[in-house]
Design a binder for these strands. Structure first.
Length: 426
RNA sequence: GGAGUAGUACUCAAGUGGCUGAAGAGGCGCCCCUGCUAAGGGUGUAGAUUGGGAAACUGAUGCGAGAGUUCAAAUCUCUCCUACUCCGCCA
């Protein structure tokens, strides 16, 4: 969300930005927002003046009553009653218009960074850099679910019976590898100086509404029956929610956290749940990075953060590349964002395993997260990035370490977490 | 889950209907004294969010949140939230 003052003062910049994102259908919002804003301010002045009169009149009633001037005080009382009636209308209108303004403001996209490549949609995202040689083995690599099943590590028939499509039983060494990955990801980030955190896995509706749109909420979030609780779709929800409405001391910044949580997503719409695999599922686990920092530090954190994910996967011998989101593919809140994609030797293409974003102060404005020093209070900048989401990350490790005989070589970095084991065999 | 107590600015804290947007203190600024430290004395200042105004200035909101009573609410009523204490339950 942008600052209304900014929109008021720089309407052309905002419009230019909307064009860059190929959202011309939103252009009219800018002028509408400016008109609404000035109407609201007019109402505010009107209301303020009436409230001033009301306060002064009420105060004078007190004085009159003390002097036992009952009649004069009754006249003044009537005046206040009239003012109150007028105020009700003005306040109602102000509330309505403010809501309308906020709704419009919420869908006006954040100003994207100058470095973001211009493009219409995800087909025009730009590869930035490859890390590691995409390796094509001389033998065929089976579908990940088949590999896992053949190693007695996956049972989707059972999960279908217990929970339906989109769930999975991981078992034996595959389950252990999954946990090893998460533990390693956790320690990897702790070593980078991030503070480890396990957040609540359920949050109240008002926090959910703070971190996403209603549409997203419907398409993603599972609600607990008869409770004001939702299962989180990512620990970012809990981690950003942690700071909702807070004013931090600038000395506490930057706050660099790495959080673990299971993630629950309905995955309604676009892609849906695939029948066979464990690539897109209702329940997965994730190690995340969340950073709150000063505005001027945001870009350097952004670069540091995605590079940590790259480093993480490289330490597991998984070739990766970074793909920058072009203007048209960038979610409205984001200033700049890139995906980290892992190489799939089976499909011989890259697939998304993580996403790194800087949101500027847009998220903080929405949720009212501030920091202050002696001189001023200001909105913080927020960033988030995936270290590891698994089973997706598990798939990358399995495919890239699959041996011709059907076994999986365990990357060195994970062996300590696997009791020293070097290979998973049938 | 039950019962009790509390929630006022950066912190502590006074305050049961109008003269309280908030006494007082710490804090913070300046000055003095003393000096190994700790401390002491004087004086000044601010306090959150936002509107109008070129500015000086001026207004609104703001006492955990919301609703209500009233001409008028930090103060009365209701609901909720949070913290603490006690009890119950539980991996």
């Amino acid at each position: 969300m942008l600052d209304i003052k900014f929109v008021r003062e720089n309407p052309d910049t905002v419009k230019e930005n909307i064009k860059k994102k190929f959202q011309d259908n939103k252009l009219h919002l800018v002028d509408e927002v400016i008109t609404l804003d000035s109407k609201i301010r007019e109402l505010k002045v009107k209301g303020d003046n009436l409230r001033q009169e009301k306060n002064e009149t009420s105060e004078s009633i007190g004085i009159l009553l003390r002097n036992k001037e009952v009649e004069a005080s009754n006249l003044k009382k009537e005046r206040v009653v009239t003012i109150n009636k007028e105020l009700i209308n003005i306040e109602e209108e102000e509330t309505t218009l403010s809501q309308e303004l906020r709704e419009k403001m919420l869908v006006i996209p954040n100003i994207i960074d100058e470095s973001v490549p211009i493009g219409k949609d995800d087909t025009q995202n730009k590869e930035i850099e490859k890390f590691g040689e995409p390796y094509i083995p001389p033998y065929e690599i089976p579908y990940h679910a088949d590999i896992c099943a053949s190693l007695n590590g996956l049972d989707k028939d059972a999960s279908g019976r217990t929970s339906g499509n989109g769930f999975y039983y991981l078992m034996n060494d595959i389950a252990r590898l999954h946990s090893a990955l998460l533990s390693y990801a956790r320690d990897f980030m702790i070593d980078k100086g991030f503070n480890y955190c396990i957040p609540p896995f359920m949050i109240h509706g008002d926090v959910v509404a703070g971190v996403m749109s209603f549409e997203e909420m419907d398409n993603m979030m599972y609600k607990i029956e008869n409770e004001d609780l939702y299962l989180i779709g990512t620990s970012e929800h809990s981690m950003i929610g942690k700071f909702k409405g807070q004013t931090l001391d600038e000395k506490e910044l930057p706050i660099a956290m790495t959080s673990y949580s299971p993630c629950f997503r309905k995955e309604v719409g676009a892609h849906g749940i695939e029948e066979r695999g464990i690539y897109r599922v209702h329940q997965f686990e994730k190690q995340e990075m969340v950073v709150l920092c000063k505005k001027e530090d945001a870009i350097s954190w952004y670069n540091k953060m995605w590079s940590y994910t790259v480093e993480f996967f490289r330490s597991l011998d998984v070739p990766v590349r970074t793909l920058e989101c072009c203007s048209g593919d960038l979610a409205d809140l984001k200033v700049k964002s890139c995906d980290v994609e892992a190489w799939s030797p089976r499909q011989q293409k890259y697939f998304e395993v993580g996403s790194c974003s800087t949101l500027g102060d847009a998220q903080a404005r929405r949720l009212n997260i501030k920091a202050k020093n002696k001189e001023e209070t200001y909105l913080v900048s927020t960033l988030n990035n995936t270290v590891l989401a698994t089973p997706r990350g598990l798939i990358a490790v399995i495919e890239n370490n699959y041996m011709e005989d059907g076994s999986i070589k365990i990357p060195k970095a994970l062996r300590n977490y696997m009791g020293g084991k070097e290979i998973i065999t049938k």
